[in-house]
Each structure stands twice: as structure tokens, then as C-alpha cells.
Design a binder for these strands. Structure first.
Lengths: 331, 331
DNA sequence: ATATTTAAACGAAACGTTTCATTTTTAGTG
DNA sequence: CACTAAAAATGAAACGTTTCGTTTAAATAT
């Protein structure tokens, strides 16, 4: 039903190879170029991606594999990545694996079967074992958020440990000695690093003490963690929250308990600049360069696609920033 | 590099058509089936989707086109839709258009060029003009959230007007006469219907009055709207928030102003059950059947793909629910 | 055992591009 | 104006499946 090169050929009288050249940026005589363009218009023609892919072995499609999209951070990263790839002519096939490692492996196969030219992923299985299937097929992989122990490939990460340090230094600077950490899951290395980074710096002096409350990643768990930490009466004067949802949950809990920030308790949040702006007083938080993470991941992929055998792997570590608000009080 | 039917042929001695039959569910002699399976194993074979698509004219890929993924509602709908499609063997190419109608049109073309078998979209352009390109190519379209004025096609919507009614009745029942509505943009028909539905019901009696505060969709604007509405001293005793982000922003603003819910002010929120559970007192809210919306949209699409010329269009309206909390006080 | 029906396997021709080795045309030179 | 070099157009052979009309093999009936 849709037109083909042959239809263009019938209209213009040009050969298939010339027409192909037109669509692939070769040199044509001006009159031929115009007559092809006229035919395209007339036919409402677009190149058949199947046939093109069959010859060129490229789909101009990237597989995106993430644990979920309910986490705002993931959703926004994905949104940005898709958009950038799109502006370079690449589509994004998105798969989530719901925190399930088995699903992660099968989603990867699924994506590869769809002939994606590359995979961008926030891996769950931190060994990276599942990714071997991609390299077996010669499909490049770019990691976001954390490296994979047994799979060397391009990656964009963030200095989570340093993020922890920064938060700790901020509390130290203001004289805090008793801090609660709303830490999230221990087996997730981003979260773990933020927490251990904090402790490393904070506990350099014995007079300072931190209480770690592990949980999942959700707002609800941030809420619960605050209730737990404060009811234990450790004499905590500050809270460090290690992702967006936890921060929000914690904030809501504090409001409910009528704890004034920062008079009753100081808070350092994580991730979301937007949130910082709206709260009053503005929340001091560690922010990740979300946009830049997405841009970098997309660029790593695009460059890798251009030079498939560029040697070595590039691991790009971006900086988190302490966005100073007014939620940490000197004591 | 990856194997082909021909390689399987060399190993098994069977013809290409027999091998094709194997992959397309025809009847084979048991021994042949086994020998093919052995060959597949040995070769690590997977069917080439380009070649298959070229013949079958199907990509087993659906295009998903939404305004953005930063809105939690959209992100979750998408996550679910992708997952369901995936479980039926369909990939999802996701495009966002950032609230930009020009981008919406070009994203649609982009998706069609990628040979998607169908389009599931939350349309921005409410005329649906841009969708004509899809039907010109015979690509089915399923709408979510709202219909398109000039484009009849399958759709999943929600009774937004009735949602407004419900909220109004709840306030009326509790004796409220002065309500503020945090309404979002007027030109977005979901938001508009929630608001107009509310007004329709609420203003049946002249003694009741509602103040509408229009804004964008973000948390920040929910926050600002509350400040505006309350500083105007209309004597408002309740607030109706018309989406998740606005609800959250409003809640934060109220907390900050030390307005107790529901003693100082009653609140009905929208969209997010999770939020309701965590807040204290639990927030009364109107919830959309998110999961069911996603399931229905995916099913409409899958069924349409199976019977491309099933006559008529199916418009499925799902019900919102009032989730009773304790944030509306009788006065 | 042979004839007949049914089921399974086969061969060849598409599907719509790209590519490479050739041929034709154009532009450039003495 | 013929002659060469460079640029553009050409034809044919892939790419890896599916499909359809036909042949061959297996199963059933005579």
C-alpha cells in the first residue's frame, strides 16, 4: 500500500540505486533530486524501515531497561534519554523489570530480539551477568547509576560517596553530633554509597554518632523511617534522606509531628531541585545532575554506535551538588 | 554473524518453509521439531525481526505518545501499558512531546516511520488532527484520558465530570458552603471536566460558592494556588485539588501554614492512593483506576490488532472512586 | 497389497531496501 | 575538438524471512 522505491522509479525514471543514494545522502544531479522529491510528495513516501534494517542491520532503535518508572528519578532520566535519542533519529523501546532480576534478563533478550542497536540500562543485577547476551551479539551497552562487577562497558555514574561526604560535612559544620540517616536498601549500591560516604566522613570523630534506618525506596518508607528514628529518642538533631521519595515522605512525617525545620530538626534531602524550591524554608539537598546524566548516557551510546570499535570503556562520573537551603541550623 | 534459517537448514536438512513453519506454529513431525530445536540451541539462533517484518508487515511494536513522563500519573500508566504489551510480545517505543503540539505531530510521524503496529496516546491536540496520518497508514490508535474531537477511534477515559460531582457531594454532605478549587489549566479537558463537574453539582444551591484557581499542573503551582486562595480570605472551608501534583503541593502549603486538616480546612485530593495512605489523617481523595486504564488501553489495542476491521469504535469509560479518608470535616 | 485421503515437507518467488562493480555522463584540459 | 579525469547513474545480487502451489510421505480405507 505505501509506495516503494520502485514507484519512485516509475515516476522519475531513475534507477533504484540513485534513489537509494538520495535517501542516504549521496550526490545527485539537482534536477534528479528535485524530481525524486516531487515523487515522494506525490506518493507520500517513506522508507520502509524493515527493508532498510534487513540490509543495513540497524534499527535506529535503542533499548532502555530500567527497574521501574514509578520512581521519579528513573522516569525523568528516561524521559530525557528518549528525547535526546529521538532528536538523533533513534527510537527508544522501554522495558521495566519491576525490580525482578529474572524479568531483567528476559527483558534484555526481548529487546535484543527487537533488534535494538544498543542498550541503555540502570542495571539491577549488579554482577552484570545478564548483559553478556548483549555483547555476544555485538550490541553496545551503556550503564547508568552503577557499574556492573563483571561487565566492563561505558557508564555514567555519580559520586554518591562524595554526596554522602558533603552532607556529612554540612552537618558537621553546623555542629550536629547526632544524625539519623534514612538510607534505603543496603543492597543497592547507590543508596549504600550515599550512606557509607556519610558515615565515613561523619564518624571521623567519635563524639559524633549516626543512626541508620534501612528501608525500601518509597515515600511511605521515608515517612515510617522518620517515625521510627524519632520515637527512639536518640536525641537526633538532623536527618539525611538519600533519595527523592524518602525525602518527601520524611518531610511529610515531620510536618505531621509538628517538628519545625530547622528549629526542631535539620534536614538534608536528596535528588529533587523542584522540591527544594517549593518547601519553606527551602530544603538543603544533594542534587544529581539529572539532565546531564541523561545527556551523557545518550551521547556515550551515540558515539559508541558511530565508532563500534573504539577501544576501551569510558566511565564518566558526574558530580552531585549540595544545594544550600535553610533546613540545616547551626547549633 | 547471527544464524539464519539457512544455517538451520544446513544442520537439519529441512527446507526453509518447514523451518518457517516451526517458528510460526505449524504442524511438524516430532523428530523434525526436535532437530530444529537442537539446531537453534547450537546456533543460538533468533529470528531476524527485519526480515520477518519485511514479509509480514508487522513489527510487534507499539508507539506510545504522551505529553511527558514527569507527571507521575503518565509515568505509571506508561509503565503498566509497556509491561502488558511486553507480556504479549509487543515492544513499546515511547515518545514524549513536552506539551508541544508541533512535537506531537512530528513524534507521531517518527513512530509511524519506525513501523509501529499501533499507537497508544494521551493526545495533546484535542482535535486529533495529527492522528490522521496514522489512519492514513492503517495504523490503529487508542486514546487515553480524552477523546479527540475530529478523530473517532478506540479510547479509554474516566468519568471526570462525575469525579467532580462526587467531590462536590462529599463537601455538601458535610455542610461546606465555601470551597476553593485548585483546578489546573482550563484548556485541558480532563482538568476542566473535574472542575466543571464540581461546580455543576456544588452550585445547585445559591448559598454555596466556589473559587476556582487556575494554574499549570505542577506541585509548585498547587502550592502557590493554596497560598493565593487562602490569603484572599474568602472564608474557604475546603479545598478540592484536581490532580496528584497539585494535591501534594497544596498539602505541603497547608502544612507550612499550620493549617490543620481537617480542623482548619477540609481537603479532597486526586489521583494517588499511595499518598492517601501515608498522610495523617488519611486524605479523602478521588482515585482513578490507573491499573485498569492501562490494562484496558493495552487490550483495546491488542484486540484491534487481531481484528483490524472490527467495525465501530469502542469508547470505554471507567469509574473514578471516592476513597474516603478523614480529611473532610462536617461543619 | 494397493488405492485413497490427509498431513507434512518442499521450491521458488516475493518483500523493499543497500551495495558494489560497471557504465554512462559531465566537466576539465591541452 | 578529441581525450582524460571525475562525477553521477545503473544493474544485479544480496539481506533473511514468509507464502503459495506442488510434491512427497504417512495414515487410513479397500
Amino acid at each position: 500500500m505505501p509506495g516503494t522505491y520502485k514507484d519512485i522509479q516509475n515516476i522519475t525514471g531513475l534507477s533504484l540505486s540513485t534513489i537509494s543514494k538520495y535517501f542516504n545522502g549521496g550526490n545527485l544531479r539537482e534536477e534528479n533530486r528535485l524530481s525524486i522529491e516531487k515523487a515522494i510528495e506525490e506518493l507520500d513516501f517513506t522508507v520502509n524501515a524493515f527493508a532498510r534494517g534487513l540490509k543495513s542491520r540497524q534499527s535506529h532503535t535503542i533499548g532502555i531497561l530500567v527497574p521501574d518508572l514509578s520512581s521519579t528519578f528513573n522516569a525523568i532520566i528516561m524521559e530525557q534519554v528518549c528525547e535526546i535519542l529521538r532528536s538523533h533519529g533513534y527510537g527508544s523501546i522501554v522495558c521495566t523489570c519491576n525490580g525482578n532480576q529474572k524479568a531483567e534478563k528476559s527483558s534484555l533478550s526481548f529487546l535484543l530480539d527487537k533488534m535494538v542497536d544498543g542498550i541503555i540500562t540502570i542495571p539491577m543485577d549488579e554482577t552484570g551477568k545478564h548483559l553478556e547476551e548483549a555483547s555476544k551479539r555485538g550490541t553496545p551497552v551503556v550503564l547508568i547509576d552503577h557499574l556492573a562487577a563483571n561487565f566492563k562497558t561505558d557508564a555514567v555514574i555519580v559520586n554518591n560517596q562524595e554526596a554522602g561526604h558533603m552532607a556529612a560535612r554540612e552537618f558537621i559544620l553546623c555542629g550536629h553530633r547526632h544524625i539519623g540517616i534514612i538510607a534505603g536498601p543496603e543492597d543497592m549500591d547507590t543508596m549504600h554509597l550515599r550512606c557509607s560516604g556519610f558515615l565515613e566522613e561523619f564518624q571521623k570523630e567519635n563524639s559524633r554518632k549516626a543512626w541508620v534506618c534501612r528501608s525500601g525506596l518509597s515515600m511511605e518508607e521515608g515517612y515510617d523511617s522518620v517515625k521510627k528514628l524519632l520515637s527512639a529518642k536518640h536525641g537526633i538533631t538532623g536527618l539525611f534522606c538519600t533519595n527523592y521519595e524518602l525525602t518527601l515522605g520524611a518531610y511529610i512525617a515531620l510536618q505531621e509531628m509538628h517538628k519545625q525545620i530547622p528549629n526542631d530538626i535539620s534536614v538534608i534531602g536528596f535528588d529533587n531541585m523542584l522540591l527544594s524550591g517549593i518547601l519553606n524554608p527551602p530544603l538543603t539537598m544533594i542534587v544529581q545532575p539529572v539532565k546531564q546524566i541523561a545527556v551523557t548516557a545518550a551521547e556515550l551510546m551515540l558515539e559508541r554506535l558511530e565508532k563500534p570499535d573504539f577501544p576501551g570503556t569510558r566511565i564518566i562520573e558526574l558530580e552531585t551538588q549540595l544545594l544550600a537551603g535553610a533546613s540545616v541550623k547551626p547549633i
